[in-house]
Amino acid sequence: MSDMFLTKDEIATLTGRKSKSKQIEALRTMGLPFWVNALDAPVVPRSAIEGRRDLPEPKPEKLPWIPAVLR
């Protein structure tokens, strides 16, 4: 499970900052998804920088019902 998120050192390297608040500021500027945990530290999913999408693909929308006389 530890490889699911970037380590503290990786976040520091990515942002160029050691302070948690400055890391959060840098991540917001970069537009990367992250969460702030109970320790006020940013948590970045590894998939955010590796380009992977672990989310399921969205299902195609169903076409609306059209009466036969209008087809």
Results as ranks from 00 to 15, higher is better:
residue 7 T to A: 10
residue 24 I to W: 00
residue 13 T to H: 14
residue 10 E to F: 10
residue 31 G to E: 04
residue 36 V to F: 09
residue 50 E to A: 03
residue 16 G to K: 04
residue 46 R to D: 02
residue 58 P to Y: 05
residue 25 E to M: 10
residue 39 L to H: 11
residue 60 P to Y: 13
residue 44 V to L: 12
residue 34 F to Q: 01
residue 29 T to C: 09
residue 47 S to I: 03
residue 68 A to H: 07
residue 48 A to R: 03
residue 70 L to M: 13
residue 64 P to F: 13
residue 56 P to D: 01
residue 11 I to C: 12
residue 19 S to N: 11
residue 12 A to I: 09
residue 4 M to D: 11
residue 56 P to Y: 00
residue 48 A to V: 02
residue 62 K to A: 15
residue 19 S to M: 10
residue 25 E to W: 06
residue 20 K to H: 12
residue 51 G to Y: 05
residue 21 S to F: 12
residue 5 F to A: 04
residue 47 S to H: 10
residue 29 T to F: 05
residue 39 L to K: 15
residue 45 P to L: 10
residue 54 D to F: 14
residue 15 T to A: 04
residue 60 P to H: 06
residue 23 Q to L: 05
residue 61 E to Q: 15
residue 24 I to F: 01
residue 39 L to I: 08
residue 59 K to A: 15
residue 9 D to F: 06
residue 50 E to Y: 02
residue 59 K to H: 12
residue 5 F to T: 13
residue 25 E to S: 14
residue 21 S to A: 13
residue 18 K to Q: 13
residue 56 P to C: 07
residue 27 L to D: 05
residue 42 P to I: 00
residue 60 P to T: 08
residue 27 L to F: 07
residue 49 I to F: 09
residue 9 D to L: 04
residue 8 K to N: 06
residue 63 L to P: 01
residue 26 A to F: 08
residue 71 R to G: 08
residue 13 T to L: 11
residue 34 F to R: 01
residue 12 A to H: 04
residue 71 R to C: 13
residue 17 R to D: 04
